[in-house]
Amino acid sequence: MPRIRTTPHLNRYFPALSAGPVEVQARLSVADLIRELDRRFPGLAAYLVDDRGALRQHVVVFVDNRPIDDRVGLSDEVDESADVFIAQALSGG
């Protein structure tokens, strides 16, 4: 059962995310996963992807600590034991 964590910065807009990691049923793609998150937390997808469904420029999705390859189609697979982490870019000096 994939386990999804999100950056705490999203908690401000979606307080329910602060309840802890989200678990989803079954194996799926990253696109499916974001759809499922949006179903549970309405509006969340628009924070992660743009008008055409591609990952926003400064958002990254890690699957088992590796950034996904397909940032446009979100076709990377998330297997049943995966750890997923969604974060925003950090910059500065």
């Binding site: 999203l10 509006g43 628009a46 992660l48 400064h58 958002v59 925003q88 870019a89």
Partner: peptide, 24 residues
């Protein structure tokens, strides 16, 4: 104009006391 999360549109019916996000 969120740096990371895109452009959001919000409105308030009580002059800024409370806000709701609407689909941009």
């Amino acid at each position: 104009d969120h740096g990371h999360w895109g452009q959001k549109l919000v409105r308030s019916r009580d002059l800024g006391e409370t806000w709701e996000e609407v689909t941009a």
